[in-house]
Design a protein around this nucleic acid. Structure first.
Length: 778
RNA sequence: GGGCCCGUGGUCUAGUGGCUAUGAUACCGCCUUGACGAGGCGGGGGUCCUGGGUUCAAAUCCCAGCGGGCCCACCA
C-alpha cells in the first residue's frame, strides 16, 4: 500500500492558527445560546488596559478559556464575556506623566477625554492578543467596559439601593490618606514596605514627680497630636506612674500615663506615646480610650496650625526640625537605626498618612458571618485558597470607605443641600455626572435650591465588584438574569493576589444587593515568574511578551506548555526553552494524524483484533481520567496524561505494532479494517480530549479528516469500548518491544530486517501475528 | 508575632508507606532516514532540603530545624 496521506502539509504551522481565528469568528459555537438550559457563566477578570499585557495574565486567560471549552463539551452553553476594567488611578497617573500635566490644574472634561483616548489605544492591543491566544470569549455582544455609561449607571444604581437600605453612610473618621494621589484609600489597598528609619528616645517630664520619662518614637513630628502615654500594666519600671501625667516637650501639654497591654516592655523604653495618628494602633487606642484627636497633618501633606511653629512643613521636614530643636534642648537621649514596615499605597507606592476625613462608607463589619458562610459553600479550585479569603474576612474591623477624591471614576450620584445638608440622590436609571449637571428642584427639607454637586468618585472596586451582575444583566433584562445568574453555574477565575479585593468585595456587594452568593466556583491561578523563579520586572530585564512568544511558537505551543507546566493554583516559571519543548508535542501529534490519514476512514468494524482491544481499553481508561481532571479544572494533570499516552504508548508502541496490518502487508482486509477503525477512533478521541487545551491544531486536523465543522461543536467523547481488557499487559508490551529493538541494535540488524531466536512471552501470544510481522521474528 | 503553601538530577515534573525513584527538557555517543525539520538505542548526571522518630519497610507518616514564596498583624 502506498503512503498517501489525507493531510498533505508536512508540518503544523502557527499560521494555520490565524486562518482558524477568522473561521471561528464567523461561527456560533462559542456564543451563548439561551435555548440551552445548562448555562455556565465565567466572570472573567476584566484586565486593565496597559501598553504591554503581562505574559502571566495571558496565561491565566488561556486557562479560563480551557474551562470554557471543557464546559461546552460537557453540554453547557457558556456566557464568557470579555471586558475591560478602565476606571481609576493607574490611567490618571499615566496621563499625567505622558501628557506632562497635573490633573488638578486640568479641566476635568479635558482630563477625562485624554484618559479615554489612551485607554482606547491599549484596549485594542489587549483584545488583539486575547484573540490571537484563541480565547473563545464574547468580544461583541457581551463585551463591556467598566467606564461605559451603562456600566457606570449600574454602579450608581447600586449606590442608591444601598444608601436607601441604610448600608451606606457618611462619617468623619481616620482614614488612609495618600498624599501623592490626594485621596482616601481602603485598607485593602494598603501594602507594607520595609524601610530603614530612625527611632528617637525623647525626654518627657512627669508632672507629679518632676522626673524624666523617656519615650521612644519614630515620628517626633506628631508630638503635637500626643494625647496619651501608655505603659504595660505589668512593667515594674512604670507601675508607680499609672494615672500620673507626662508633659509633652515643645508643646508643654499634659497627657495621662495609663497602663495598657499594647505597650511592649521589650521594645524601645516600654513607654509609648499615642498620637493622632501615627499608625492604626493609635487609631484604635484613641477610639477605645475616648480621646479627642488633633489633626496634625493636613490633606496637603503639610503640618497644620496644631503643630505651631512647624506649620506648613511636610512631615519629613518637620521631623528634621523637631529633632534639631529637641537636641538643642538636650531632650534626645538616644538615636537608633531600625528597620520599620511602613504603610504604602499599592498603586503609587507612596507612604500613606492616617488623617481624619469626611467620607462615605459601606457597611461590611456586619456581614462577616454571611461572607464566611459563602466562603464555605463555594467550590474552590484548588481548595487551599479558601483559607486566604477566610483570613481576610476575619481581619476586617472597620467599614469600607468608598469615596475617592479623583476624576476618572464613577461619580457618586448625589447633590447636597448647601443650606441644610439634605442629600439628594439621582433618581433616574441613566449615568449622571453631578458636577456637570445642575439640580433645579427644591430641597424637600428646607426649600432651598442651592445644591452642592458631589464631585468625588467611587472606589473602583465599587465598579469591578459587580461584574457578575453586569454581565448577567441584573436590572436590565429580567429573563436573561434569571437564566444566567439565578439558574446558571457561576465561576470566578482570578489570581490569589486579589482575593482580599476583587473576590471579597464581589461577595460582599452581591450579597448586600441581592442576598445571594455570587459564585459557585472560584478558580485561582498562580503567578508567572521567570525561568529562575523571579518576578518579571523591567529592571531585571527578564520580561517576556505574549505576542512575541505567540509569533515565534504559535498559541497552541504556549497553551500546551501551560497544560504541561502549570499546576492548578501554583506559581510557574516561564521558560522559552520549555515552550519550544511543548511545540515538539504538536509536531508529533501532527505527524501521527498525517500517518493515520493515509488509511480509510472506518466507522464500524465487526470484530476487533486483540491488539486493537488493548489500545482501545487503555484509551478508555485515559478518557475517564481526563474527564475527572477536567471536572476539577485540572488541565495540568490532564495534559501530562494525554501527552504521555499519545507519545509513549500510542505512537511508540501501538502504531509500530499495527503498521504492517494497516498496510495489509501480510494481512487480509478484515484484519486491516480493525486497525483502520482503531487508528481513527483513537485519533478522534485524542483530538477531542486535547481540544480544550490546544484548540487550533485539533480543529485543523478535525476539519481535514473528520468534518466540515469545528471540533469545538463536539461533545465530550463517550466510552470508546464496551469492556476494557488486557489492561495489565501494557508494560509487558512496551518492555518486549524495547527488548527486541535493543537486541537488533546490538546485533547490528536493521529494524525492518528479520531476526531469529526471540521468543514471544506467553502473555503476549494473543498478539503474535502483529508482533511477528512488526519485528519480523523468525 | 501568627497563618498558609512549597522544597525530588542543570531546569521542570510524577510518585503520599513496599521492586534498583517517573518522565520531560537540555547535554554526550551510536544507529536510522519509507508517519516524524524527526525517530530508535544507549550514556552521564539525584545526600528525594537537614536531623530525629514511627515501621519489617519512609521521597511518602510524625516531630524539630533550615531554605524559598505568599498572606495577615499594632512593634511605637
Amino acid at each position: 500500500m502506498e503512503f498517501n496521506p489525507g493531510i498533505e502539509e508536512k508540518r503544523w504551522k502557527p499560521e494555520f492558527e490565524e486562518e482558524l481565528i477568522e473561521k471561528w469568528s464567523n461561527e456560533s459555537w462559542w456564543k451563548l445560546d439561551l435555548k440551552n438550559k445548562k448555562i455556565f457563566v465565567i466572570d472573567t477578570p476584566p484586565p486593565y488596559p496597559a501598553p504591554f499585557w503581562h505574559i502571566g495574565a495571558a496565561i491565566s486567560y488561556s486557562m479560563q478559556d480551557m474551562i470554557a471549552r471543557i464546559k461546552r463539551m460537557q453540554g453547557y452553553t457558556v456566557l464568557y464575556p470579555i471586558g475591560m476594567d478602565r476606571n481609576g488611578i493607574p490611567i490618571e497617573m499615566y496621563v499625567e506623566k505622558y501628557e506632562n500635566l497635573d490633573m488638578w490644574s486640568t479641566p476635568r472634561e479635558e482630563f477625562e477625554r485624554l484618559c479615554k483616548q489612551h485607554l482606547d489605544k491599549w484596549t485594542t492591543n489587549t483584545i488583539n492578543i486575547m484573540k490571537r491566544l484563541g480565547l473563545s470569549g464574547d468580544y461583541t455582544e457581551h463585551y463591556y467596559e467598566t467606564d461605559s455609561p451603562s456600566y457606570r449607571a449600574l454602579t450608581q444604581k447600586t449606590f442608591k439601593i444601598l444608601w436607601e437600605k441604610g448600608l451606606i453612610y457618611e462619617a468623619e473618621r481616620p482614614n488612609n490618606w495618600c498624599p501623592h494621589c490626594n485621596t482616601t484609600i481602603a485598607d485593602a489597598e494598603v501594602e507594607y514596605k520595609e524601610k530603614q528609619g530612625e527611632i528617637y528616645h525623647i525626654k518627657f517630664k512627669v508632672r507629679e514627680t518632676g522626673k524624666d520619662l523617656i519615650i521612644a518614637t519614630t515620628r517626633p513630628e506628631l508630638l503635637a497630636g500626643c494625647k496619651l502615654v501608655i505603659v504595660h500594666p505589668e512593667d515594674e519600671r512604670y507601675k508607680e506612674l499609672h494615672g500620673m501625667h507626662a508633659v509633652v516637650p515643645i508643646y508643654n501639654t499634659e497627657v495621662e500615663i495609663r497602663p495598657h497591654r499594647e505597650a511592649d516592655p521589650e521594645f524601645g523604653t516600654g513607654a509609648v506615646m499615642i498620637c493622632s495618628y501615627g499608625d492604626s494602633s493609635d487609631v484604635r487606642i484613641f477610639r477605645e480610650q475616648g480621646l479627642e484627636p488633633v489633626k496634625v497633618i493636613g490633606t496637603d501633606n503639610k503640618l497644620t496650625e496644631a503643630a505651631g511653629k512647624y506649620k506648613g512643613l511636610t512631615p519629613e521636614e518637620a521631623r528634621r526640625e523637631i529633632v534639631k530643636d529637641l537636641e538643642e534642648q538636650g531632650l534626645i537621649v538616644k538615636r537608633e537605626q531600625l528597620t520599620q514596615k511602613i504603610p504604602i499605597h499599592d498603586k503609587c507606592r507612596t507612604r500613606i498618612e492616617i488623617i481624619p476625613m469626611r467620607e462615605y462608607y459601606l457597611k461590611q463589619v456586619d456581614f462577616k458571618d454571611q461572607l464566611l458562610e459563602y466562603a464555605s459553600q463555594i467550590l474552590w479550585h484548588p481548595e487551599r485558597y479558601r483559607q486566604h479569603l477566610e483570613n481576610w474576612i476575619n481581619s476586617v474591623t472597620i467599614d469600607w470607605p468608598i469615596s475617592r477624591r479623583r476624576y476618572y471614576g464613577t461619580e457618586i450620584p448625589i447633590w447636597k443641600c448647601k443650606k441644610c445638608g439634605y442629600i439628594h440622590i439621582y433618581e433616574k436609571d441613566d449615568y449622571v455626572k453631578p458636577w456637570k449637571q445642575e439640580l433645579k428642584e427644591k430641597c424637600p427639607k428646607c426649600g432651598s435650591t442651592d445644591w452642592e454637586p458631589e464631585w468625588r468618585t467611587l472606589d473602583t472596586w465599587m465598579d469591578s465588584s459587580i461584574t457578575i451582575l453586569y454581565i448577567t444583566k441584573w436590572l436590565r433584562d429580567k429573563e436573561f438574569f434569571e437564566k444566567c445568574f439565578l439558574n446558571g453555574e457561576k465561576l470566578r477565575p482570578q489570581g490569589y493576589e486579589i482575593i482580599r479585593t476583587w473576590l471579597y468585595y464581589s461577595l460582599l456587594r452581591v450579597g448586600q444587593l441581592i442576598g445571594k452568593r455570587a459564585f459557585d466556583h472560584v478558580f485561582i491561578n498562580g503567578m508567572g515568574l521567570d525561568a529562575k523563579g523571579r518576578k518579571m520586572s523591567k529592571s531585571l530585564g527578564n520580561v517576556l511578551y505574549p505576542e512575541e512568544l505567540i509569533e515565534k511558537y504559535g498559541a497552541d505551543s504556549l497553551r500546551m506548555w501551560i497544560g504541561l507546566e502549570c499546576g492548578i493554583g501554583e506559581n510557574y516559571n516561564i521558560s522559552e526553552e520549555k515552550i519550544r519543548g511543548a511545540q515538539k508535542f504538536l509536531v508529533k501529534l501532527w505527524n501521527i494524524a498525517r500517518f493515520i490519514s493515509a488509511f480509510p476512514l472506518t466507522d464500524k468494524v465487526e470484530e476487533l483484533e486483540e491488539l486493537d482491544k488493548w489500545i482501545l481499553g487503555e484509551l478508555e481508561e485515559l478518557r475517564k481520567r481526563v474527564l475527572k481532571n477536567y471536572e476539577e479544572f485540572d488541565f495540568h494533570k490532564a495534559a501530562l496524561d494525554l501527552r504521555s499516552f499519545t507519545w509513549n504508548i500510542f505512537a511508540s508502541h501501538y502504531l509500530e505494532l499495527v503498521k504492517r496490518r494497516a498496510r495489509m502487508d501480510g494481512f487480509n482486509e478484515k484484519e486491516a479494517r480493525s486497525a483502520w477503525y482503531t487508528l481513527h477512533k483513537t485519533l478522534k478521541t485524542l483530538l477531542l480530549l486535547l481540544a480544550p487545551i490546544v484548540p487550533f491544531i485539533t480543529d485543523k486536523i478535525w476539519r481535514q479528516l473528520y468534518s466540515k465543522e469545528s471540533i469545538h461543536k463536539e461533545p465530550f467523547p463517550e466510552s470508546v469500548i464496551e469492556t476494557v481488557t488486557h489492561r495489565d499487559i501494557t508494560e509487558k508490551i512496551t518492555e518486549f518491544n524495547s527488548r527486541v529493538w535493543n537486541t537488533k541494535k546490538e546485533k547490528g540488524i536493521k529494524f525492518y530486517e528479520p531476526i531469529q531466536g526471540i521468543e514471544i512471552p506467553e502473555e503476549l501470544r494473543i498478539f503474535e501475528k502483529d508482533i511477528r510481522a512488526t519485528h519480523r521474528l523468525e
